[in-house]
Simulated assay, not measured.
Amino acid sequence: MKRALRLVLLLFPLALLLAAPTLGRAETKTALTWYGQSAFKLTTPSGKVLLIDPWIVNPVNKNGAQDLAALNKADLILITHGHGDHVGNAVEIAKKTGAKLVANYDLGRALVQYGGFPEKLAERSGLGFPGGELNLLDGEVKILLVPAVHSSVLEAAPGTPLAGKVVYAGTPIGFVISVKGGPTIYHTGDTDVFWDMSMIGNLNKIDLMLACIGGHFTMGPSRAALAVKLVHPAEVVPMHFGSNPLLTGTPKEFGAALAELPFDGPRPVVREMKVGETLLLSGR
């Protein structure tokens, strides 16, 4: 008995030493912050920062100016299409942080030629077309470009050719963002529901869907609920509503429409975010 006790006492420090790398180490999660409309900041477990449709200074974000001033770090800027409420403050942020552009190839060219976006930050590696998957930030994220049913034009900025004119800005898209060690997030961009959304859900296990619900220019609550049924994510955040009087869809209406639909398997959870709120996310 004494010999066994001595053996345990000898081996216990070794066991602690082997376990030390994992003791007290908290899991680092992916953070998602909503700025209103379709604007999000995604921070990966390693600290890389992605901004999506960064209209930071918008009517529903009371702290927009302060939030924009505080954005001192960004690695990638993802833009779904050329409308002003999605390009937003992208040019200013890119010039300030050196963040590289991720967008439809044609939108990238238009932003450089007519939008004032720094050409050196609009590399071919970050530009593509629907169906293309971009492996970025040394494998930290993979970004799949997927279709959206909408339009995409850009108003040429002062000091650029065709200033004040509207120019073509490629086809609209959404993004499926897969974070290494984190979740897979589908940002729909501006869109109506379309049948191929089922393929997005079938080919990608979506942890979180960011779905436009405002109506008028995009799908409203009922059609957005159908889109969620096709994609079947684990969770869904409603976005793109309330920023102007025409976007009348509400999260309450969306949640009610979703509750009426039958689902095979677990029902997606609606997570209604407040402007400025941050969610901590894990992968499935």
Rank of each mutant, 00 (worst) to 15 (best):
residue 278 T to W: 02
residue 210 L to D: 03
residue 134 L to P: 12
residue 179 V to H: 10
residue 202 N to Y: 08
residue 130 P to G: 08
residue 171 T to R: 13
residue 279 L to G: 11
residue 257 A to N: 11
residue 61 N to M: 05
residue 122 A to T: 08
residue 110 A to L: 01
residue 64 G to V: 03
residue 115 G to S: 04
residue 213 I to M: 13
residue 12 F to W: 13
residue 257 A to H: 10
residue 66 Q to F: 13
residue 185 I to L: 15
residue 85 D to P: 00
residue 269 V to D: 06
residue 38 S to W: 00
residue 213 I to D: 15
residue 168 Y to C: 01
residue 33 T to S: 14
residue 80 T to H: 11
residue 94 A to K: 04
residue 85 D to E: 08
residue 165 K to P: 00
residue 169 A to H: 08
residue 188 T to C: 04
residue 73 K to Q: 14
residue 22 T to E: 13
residue 271 R to V: 11
residue 162 L to D: 06
residue 16 L to N: 11
residue 170 G to W: 00
residue 238 P to Q: 07
residue 188 T to Q: 06
residue 108 G to A: 09
residue 251 P to Q: 05
residue 7 L to H: 09
residue 46 S to K: 14
residue 12 F to T: 15
residue 103 A to N: 09
residue 166 V to A: 14
residue 154 L to D: 07
residue 119 E to P: 00
residue 161 P to Q: 09
residue 277 E to I: 06
residue 30 T to R: 05
residue 191 T to Y: 10
residue 253 E to G: 15
residue 129 F to K: 11
residue 172 P to Q: 10
residue 211 A to G: 03
residue 204 N to M: 04
residue 65 A to Y: 08
residue 58 N to R: 11
residue 183 P to S: 11
residue 215 G to P: 11
residue 68 L to A: 12
residue 53 D to F: 02
residue 146 V to Q: 08
residue 87 V to I: 14
residue 61 N to I: 06
residue 43 T to E: 15
residue 262 P to S: 13
residue 6 R to I: 11
residue 5 L to V: 15
residue 205 K to V: 09
residue 74 A to D: 05
residue 223 R to N: 13
residue 123 E to V: 12
residue 17 L to R: 01
residue 177 I to Y: 02
residue 31 A to Y: 01
residue 8 V to A: 15
residue 57 V to G: 08
residue 161 P to G: 05
residue 281 L to T: 12
residue 34 W to Y: 09
residue 76 L to A: 08
residue 241 F to D: 01
residue 248 T to N: 11
residue 21 P to K: 10
residue 283 G to A: 12
residue 73 K to N: 10
residue 92 E to W: 05
residue 127 L to Y: 04
residue 191 T to I: 02
residue 192 D to K: 14
residue 190 D to T: 08
residue 107 L to W: 03
residue 191 T to R: 03
residue 198 S to V: 05
residue 274 K to F: 10
residue 228 V to Y: 07
residue 178 S to L: 04
residue 143 I to F: 09
residue 260 E to W: 02
residue 98 G to N: 02
residue 117 F to K: 11
residue 13 P to S: 06
residue 57 V to M: 06
residue 65 A to I: 06
residue 111 L to V: 00
residue 118 P to R: 06
residue 105 Y to D: 04
residue 93 I to N: 02
residue 277 E to S: 12
